[in-house]
């Protein structure tokens, strides 16, 4: 039986002749019509992982593991086969819509090109469908706007054009890499709602990559948290957000706090270890308020901490003692957790 959706198994990607491992043993699964949020800081490997799913890897990368899309192994495809599944099987939108659009092609034509590269339809039909897609992603007056060039649109509208292009070949899986990071909050809100609606209406799988736990939480049903090249927590969105079992997730949660009762914003002290200097034991230990000798003893596996909820931590029981608002250890509340 073929496994539907996007399935990443034990993926490792290293650079510099294997000396610098950017991603270590990553497992990730996005089912059709499911939205998975992949969260992490810059350098955590989250963008690299999503690009790998499209077969977009730097030539010098050393890759092991398996990536399958609806049962088809992405890493073993020829360039011609890859081109065929890019667009119709899996499509991607990026952070910066300006540099992903050809500035001298009218947007209607750009969308029609995508349609015609996957289906043999007449130009007129393709343009009609382009107009329908522009309307679908919330661009007003698409019959007129299809003749505009990318620079005539605002950042948010350009991102909608990118989404229309991504949808043009009816992909079964959409990867969105920080799609709203360059946009202001009101525009971001509109794009997130659009992505959420599209995935429900089209039954499309969605992998949303972001550094912002709140962005991911407002769209996704599952969340995977990445730190220094590893998944450190994964589970249903509410469990990961509200019943975090990994101190790093608690820290990310704390850094979104804006309560005026605090004198300073909570933040995670320090910075992630650079490539090539990641410890064999817990990679977060140097920044963790709960660090104990057993954290430094050896590699930490992902352990089950609830139904369908996993965390990479040896002190998952004690994580409940961390204050989600301030990322400090609460006193005298140890009795709370079982």
């Amino acid at each position: 039986m073929t496994e539907l959706g996007l399935n990443i198994e034990n993926l490792s990607i290293a650079f510099d002749r294997g000396r610098k491992e950017a991603i270590s043993g990553l497992d990730l699964k996005v089912l059709p019509s499911q939205a998975l949020g992949l969260v992490g800081e810059s350098g955590s490997g989250k963008s690299l992982a999503s690009r790998a799913a499209l077969g977009l890897l730097p030539r010098k990368a050393r890759v092991t593991g398996r990536i399958t899309l609806d049962g088809q192994s992405v890493l073993e495809l020829s360039p011609a086969q890859l081109r065929r599944i890019r667009g119709s099987g899996i499509a991607m939108i990026f952070q910066d819509p300006m540099s992903s659009l050809n500035p001298v092609v009218r947007v209607g034509e750009a969308i029609a090109q995508v349609i015609r590269s996957h289906e043999s339809v007449a130009q007129g039909v393709a343009l009609e469908r382009a107009v329908a897609l522009m309307a679908r992603v919330g661009i007003r007056d698409p019959e007129t706007r299809m003749r505009s060039f990318p620079h005539e649109f605002s950042g948010g509208m350009r991102q909608r054009i990118m989404i229309a292009m991504a949808l043009a070949a009816r992909p079964r899986m959409l990867l969105a890499d920080e799609p709203t990071t360059a946009l202001d909050v009101i525009v971001q809100d509109g794009i997130l709602k659009l992505l959420d609606q599209l995935r429900r209406d089209e039954g499309m799988g969605l992998l949303l990559v972001s550094h912002d736990l709140a962005v991911v939480g407002s769209v996704c049903d599952r969340i995977a948290v990445m730190y220094a090249g590893q998944i450190v927590e994964e589970g249903p969105a509410m469990d990961v957000l509200m019943r975090s079992r990994m101190p790093y997730t608690v820290g990310l949660h704390a850094s979104t706090q804006r309560s005026k009762t605090l004198k300073r914003l909570p933040s995670i002290p320090g910075a992630p270890p650079p490539l090539g200097e990641r410890p064999a034991s817990c990679r977060f230990a140097a920044r963790c308020p709960l660090v104990a000798p057993q954290c430094l003893a050896g590699p930490v596996p992902l352990v089950s901490v609830g139904s369908d909820h996993m965390a990479r931590c040896v002190r998952t029981a004690e994580v409940a003692n961390l204050d989600r608002a301030t990322f400090t250890v609460r006193e005298r509340e140890a009795a709370h957790n079982g």
Binding site: V185, I186, Q188, D189, L192, D212, L213, A214, V215, G217, S218, A237, M238, L241, M242, H253, T256, R258
Partner: peptide, 12 residues
């Protein structure tokens, strides 16, 4: 502007 900022309280 206030409503558009995603926050974990709203998610909850």
């Amino acid at each position: 502007l206030m409503d558009a900022v995603p926050s974990l309280e709203k998610v909850a």
